[in-house]
Design a binder for these strands. Structure first.
Length: 552
RNA sequence: GGCCCGUUAGUCAAGCGGUCAAGACGUUGGCCUCUCACGCCGAAGACAGGAGUUCGAUUCUCCUACGGGUCACCA
């Protein structure tokens, strides 16, 4: 059957416009000149809408593998399905991945492609696919199929009735044995066709295959004459994947485990074309807990499946990346504990340590990671991160925050920098509420004084404090004044004494501090009152103390 | 339904024939403390079920159950 004259004729009939050969492309896209062990990976999203959490998950693995081995990480746009293509999706993909710190060495960009193995948009590669297709026809490995949708539906029904495997194969493959004359006639009649693989597989055949994460497995051999080129001459995913990853010289294919069920198509194609199989990594899905059951994180139903969710909620991008890393490699957390100051790009990612089961998305864990990350940042970093978030998602607050950057950074520096930093903030969007009392515009006090205190006592505390307040006290003096005041009022200055016999006192030093805190911040919970007063400055402290007295 | 993948606490997970079955998040008790946020010390909480192999199974094999994925001219 191989290269029989009739096949050659058929190839010309089907692809008269194709004059290149596979060899031409082998030369055009030579093996990459990279150091031993360098890994070439790609992320290959289809431009069907906003970018998905799963894209980032896979992209992170790709990026780490490539960059930690001195390899190449590139972006390929899988736009073979024009019906589903969404305007501006490529820009969104680029923007999204960029925000999460993933940088490409080559591939599609907003404007033109970059790199020697392009074009990187599949629709621009039609000639390449058709060249391979033509060659396969010549070799008797592919044939045109003129079945209509209805005919295929009939086949399926008949198979269902017979209990046969679904698909286009064996006796069901109506057009597999068409003669050149029949084909010529059909073409002349203007019938549209798809190009199908003439699969050499047997229905009871088995094929061994390997996945770097799941290990070795035995899959049924493919016996299906799958569609290679759709009627518009554009390949299906299966055909495009094999051709692109061969000619772009991808060494490792990272993709979701939904591809496991068509894995045997791809292996068969690689073998038939005589090309070396890449290493495969099929990643488990990120799941979502819904009631008692779990399901795949859904783009449609789950807001957290969208990358934009994290950005708008104010999660720092590195936090999301770190969360993903903890899910991907369980030893990441240990590493992070030992190396709190290193960038997570210094972590050596090991695919063999990846879990094989799908993980339920755990927002509490993400929050914890984000909180710790924020607590370790400098005031300036927090300021920058918050400003960047606010600029896009909270413009009013942005104006307030950036009016006096030095002042804002002073606020954000409270309790920061020591060995046990405060952890008040989990996400950037916590900042507005956290700092609101520092700005007159948003200072909205609720005077909830300790309710076991008498009005007169509260008044006395405020009066006496106003008298002795001096803005340049250090923390020691500041607190000793509070103790003095406590004693003067007959309150317990010593908390132990108070706890031993609460009835003996009208209040204690904690109450006095609370009165001042509430007066100054308008809240019952706040960072260190001393630090707050320092930042507010003399005038505003006095003003607030007096204002509090007025409402008594 | 066929085929494939999976199954250790509420969640993420170590474990790779002999462990009192790590650790983290969450929950919770306490300590520290001027509130809060930290931090520290504790607690509760798991090998889906059944056969087999073995002196011994969380670990190996098989079956069952459950969960997930996929059966397109979508990726």
């Amino acid at each position: 059957m191989e290269c029989m004259p009739s096949n050659l004729r058929l190839a010309e009939l089907l692809f008269p416009h194709i004059d290149k050969t596979p060899e031409y492309y082998e030369t055009k896209y030579p093996p990459r000149n990279l150091p031993e062990g360098a890994i070439v990976t790609r992320i290959a999203p289809s431009p069907t809408g906003y970018i998905h959490f799963g894209n980032l998950y896979g992209a992170l693995i790709d990026e780490r593998l490539a960059h930690q081995t001195g390899g190449v990480f590139y972006l390929r746009i899988e736009n073979t399905d024009q019906k589903r293509e969404v305007e501006g999706a490529v820009e969104q993909i680029l923007d999204g991945l960029n925000k999460f710190g993933l940088r490409f060495d080559e591939g599609a960009t907003e404007t033109k492609d970059r790199g020697a193995y392009g074009p990187y948009r599949q629709r621009d590669r039609a000639e390449l696919y058709q060249t391979i297709a033509k060659d396969m026809v010549k070799r008797g490995l592919a044939y045109p199929c003129f079945c209509t949708e209805e005919e295929l539906e009939d086949i399926r029904k008949a198979q269902e009735k017979e209990g046969a495997n679904f698909g286009y194969y064996g006796k069901w493959a109506k057009h597999a044995q068409d003669t050149p004359e029949q084909i010529e006639t059909a073409l002349r009649e203007g019938k549209s066709f798809v190009l199908r693989l003439r699969s050499p597989g047997r229905e009871d055949g088995k094929v061994r295959c390997r996945d770097l994460v799941k290990g070795d497995m035995e899959l049924p051999e493919n016996f299906n004459d799958i569609v290679l080129l759709k009627s518009d001459g554009i390949p299906t995913y299966h055909f495009a994947h094999v051709i692109d990853d061969h000619f772009m010289r991808t060494t490792h294919v990272v993709r979701g485990e939904e591809w496991l069920s068509t894995f045997h198509y791809h292996l068969q194609l690689f073998d038939l074309l005589g090309w070396q199989r890449p290493v495969y990594i099929h990643t488990p899905h990120m799941l979502k807990q819904e009631g008692a059951s779990k399901r795949k994180l859904s783009k449609r139903k789950d807001p957290e499946a969208r990358l934009s969710f994290y950005l708008s909620e104010g999660y720092p991008a590195e936090g999301v990346v770190e969360y993903l890393l903890t899910v991907l490699n369980s030893d990441f957390e240990d590493w992070r504990k030992k190396n709190p100051d290193l960038s997570c790009s210094d972590f050596r990612f090991r695919p063999e340590r990846m879990g094989t089961a799908g993980a339920v998305f755990d927002i509490d864990k993400l929050r914890d990671i984000s909180r710790t990350l924020l607590s370790r940042m400098s005031a300036e970093e927090v300021y920058r991160g918050t400003a960047a978030w606010a600029k896009e998602y909270a413009p009013e607050f942005y104006t307030l925050l950036t009016r006096d950057p030095a002042y804002s950074q002073k606020i954000l520096s409270i309790g920061r920098g020591g060995p046990k930093p405060r952890k008040d903030l989990t996400v950037w969007s916590d900042v507005p509420e956290y700092v609101d009392f520092f700005f007159e515009e948003t200072f909205d006090p609720v005077y909830l004084f300790p309710d076991h205190l008498e009005q007169e006592d509260i008044r006395a505390i405020l009066d006496r404090y106003v008298q002795r307040y001096t803005p340049d006290d250090d923390q020691q003096i500041w607190f000793s004044k509070i103790r003095e005041l406590t004693a003067e009022l007959g309150f317990a200055a010593d908390m132990k004494a108070y706890k031993a016999d609460p009835a003996a006192y009208r209040g204690n030093v904690s109450d006095v501090s609370m009165v001042l805190r509430v007066a100054v911040t308008g809240k019952t919970a706040s960072p260190d009152t001393f630090a707050v007063m320092q930042i507010l400055g003399k005038d505003r402290v006095l003003q607030r103390l007096n204002r509090a007295k007025e409402v008594l």
